[in-house]
Design a protein around this nucleic acid. Structure first.
Length: 566
RNA sequence: GAUUCGUUAGCUCAGCUGGUAGAGCACAUCCCUUUUAAGGAUGGGGUCCUGGGUUCGAACCCCAGACGAAUCACCA
């Protein structure tokens, strides 16, 4: 059912067609300027051609003002009847412009730049061309002199579901996504200058490895096998290091079949990089360099406002081991503690534990509860317990730990890196421990990847690898509190669509085709519902519908309605 | 998954104790050749998210459901 405004727009569309103008022309429309070019480089009387969406229109008799929004901004346009229609025929202005155009229509404008009496740079329109007709009215947010937005298009659900509308109507939204691309481009140029190779690895994987997470599963018909959408690309990138590349990286969409909230989306982007002959100390320096570079290039500063807090990405970042961090925040020295001692320690400081938790998990629990959120400034947390990091090399000084760091910013994990485990025998044992965890019921334990073990058996140089969450980085640098604000199309529950009537079931009982829509719109959405109703009620509703919608068909007779019920 | 809140015109939102559905913007008609969240007048526009229940009577109360948001849990 179309709204009144949509119906009026469709009528205008028909009038435009009847007038002989194609509302959806095919030809290229060449513009000479963007709106901002004209505004920033004012030349009185200059002829310009621009194109964009009509976002405002005020008709003042023989003259009208409007504004055109193109990809870079907005500019005012001035329409004068006698300029647009120099001859006797004023229909281009009186009918086409005034009556048949609507806000949201996409126009091409030819005209001359001038300043209005009030001093606003505008285009005096000589000719305008309809490039595309808009049939649905846009929301109309307006900003007043004090910067207050009226009638804002703010409802998150609508904004995310109709991102195209959000982008048209809310200026700052576009900026966030432009910045996102700048951040990625800047990271790519940093990596590319180092001569590392950007690669692409499989998204459809037979074994979803490289992280602990529940995968999405799908099926390949020709091979008749299950395939998983990747949860990480780590194991493939390491295979490439085995193959002899010095450094490889990938901007990878990963998929995890887990909860959704303002920091998690089922598909998200990570950049992972692996460099041969390096260790995690080197990688910390590298990560600092990269983040400082990106901030300077994209923001022009390393000072970033995140919510209430100011975060500085200037290197060097603080480094602290997980053991020292826990000592600092709880006074408990976990080094050399047994599993039972750890469990008691957790209880003494009010950290909830369960019997299934091993040593590593217990330590992680303490860190997560008591330490993590306090790291606002970029901080490398190093040397994680071995149980939590099955792909990471054991610490050179302590076999209970691994050479791993996570970079915490604003109390959240931004990056994760290792000195990569390259001992195939150790790797196999660690996978086997994961299998045991899986047998205990840990549905996020890693799968064992025998081909990856085989690759390590051929020999992988010592390597350091790092993964950084691109969506989180963008959230930080754009000061956006939710991941939905930095994804163009965040995951939503599917929208329910009216499917319309099943015409054949109505035709079966001899309902005339022109009455099917009225029946459906009157609430009798299928045959059963209709036949449960009383014929007299149906008869009244249908003729009521006919009258209300001014249908150009004769009123239906009660006898005919009754005949459907036989 | 849990809890809380929300869903009313194209958009933003009011709607009291249950008693005929409201405003601004947008839209339509008319007037107006330089406006600044563009002026004036008049008017049209509603499945009050859906389905049940209570009631003489439900946008409002009760039950169930859909969708969304926030917080929490989960996410090494």
């Amino acid at each position: 059912m179309l709204s009144e405004q949509e119906q009026i727009r469709r009528e205008s569309l028909q009038k435009i067609i009847d007038y002989g103008i194609n509302p959806y022309p095919a030809a290229e429309f060449r513009v000479s300027h963007y709106s901002v070019d004209v505004l920033e480089n004012f030349k009185d009387g200059e002829s310009v051609i621009i194109a964009g969406r009509l976002m405002r229109r005020k008709i003042q008799g023989k003259a009208s003002f409007g504004s055109i929004q193109d990809s870079k901004g907005k500019i005012q346009v001035y329409f004068n009847r006698d300029v647009i229609c120099p001859s006797e025929d004023k229909s281009m202005y009186n009918d086409f412009f005034k009556k048949w155009l609507d806000l949201g229509d996409i126009l091409g404008i030819e005209g001359k730049v001038f300043k209005t009496m009030v001093g606003e740079i505008s285009i005096n329109v000589d000719k305008f061309h309809l490039l595309s007709k808009s049939l649905k009215p846009l929301p109309q947010p307006k900003t007043d002199n004090e910067g207050i937005i009226h009638n804002g298009f703010n409802a998150p659900e609508l904004r995310y579901r109709r991102r195209y509308v959000d982008l048209v109507v809310n200026e700052n939204v576009k900026e966030t996504f432009i910045k996102r691309t700048k951040i990625i481009n800047s990271m790519r140029s940093f990596l590319s200058k180092k001569d590392y190779l950007e690669v692409e690895t499989p998204i459809l994987q037979t074994i979803p490895g490289g992280a602990a997470a529940r995968p999405f599963i799908t099926h390949h018909n020709a091979l008749d096998v299950s395939l998983y959408l990747r949860i990480a690309n780590e194991l493939y990138l390491k295979r490439l290091i085995v193959g002899g590349f010095e450094g490889v990286y990938e901007f990878a969409k990963d998929f995890r079949n887990e909860g959704m909230d303002r920091t998690h989306n089922p598909e998200f982007t990570q950049m992972e990089i692996y460099v041969a002959y390096k260790d995690y100390h080197w990688m910390m320096n590298f990560t600092e360099d990269m983040l400082e570079f990106i901030c300077n290039e994209v923001l022009g500063t390393t000072q970033v406002q995140i919510g209430e807090k100011k975060v500085n990405f200037k290197k060097p970042f603080k480094r602290i081991s997980m053991t020292d961090s826990i000592l600092e925040h709880t006074g408990i020295d976990i080094s050399n503690m047994s599993e039972n001692a750890l469990r008691e320690a957790c209880k003494s400081i009010g950290v909830e534990v369960s019997d299934s938790m091993g040593k590593g998990k217990l330590i992680d629990e303490i860190f997560g509860e008591k330490c993590e959120s306090s790291y606002i400034q970029p901080t490398f947390i190093t040397d994680y317990p071995v149980e939590m990091s099955p792909l990471c090399k054991k610490h050179r000084d302590n076999p209970e730990l691994t050479e791993r760091f996570e970079l915490m910013v604003n109390g959240k994990e931004l990056a994760n890196a290792y000195s990569e485990l390259n001992d195939p025998i150790d790797q196999k044992e660690r996978f086997e421990e994961q299998v045991k965890l899986a047998e205990k019921g840990d549905d996020e334990a890693m799968f064992i990847d025998l081909d990856f073990i085989r690759a390590l058996e051929y020999g992988m140089p010592p390597t350091s690898g790092m993964g950084i969450g691109i969506d989180r980085l963008v959230m930080f640098l754009c000061n956006q509190p939710s991941i939905q604000e930095v994804l163009l199309f965040p995951q939503m529950k599917p929208e329910k669509w009216e499917t319309g009537p099943n015409k054949s079931e109505f035709l079966e009982i001899n309902i005339p085709p022109q009455w099917i829509i009225p029946i459906y719109e009157s609430g009798y959405t299928n045959k059963e519902l209709l036949l449960e109703a009383k014929p007299t009620a149906v008869h009244q509703k249908l003729n009521g519908y006919r009258k209300k919608n001014k249908l150009d068909i004769p009123a239906i007779l009660l006898e005919e309605v009754q005949s459907w019920f036989k």
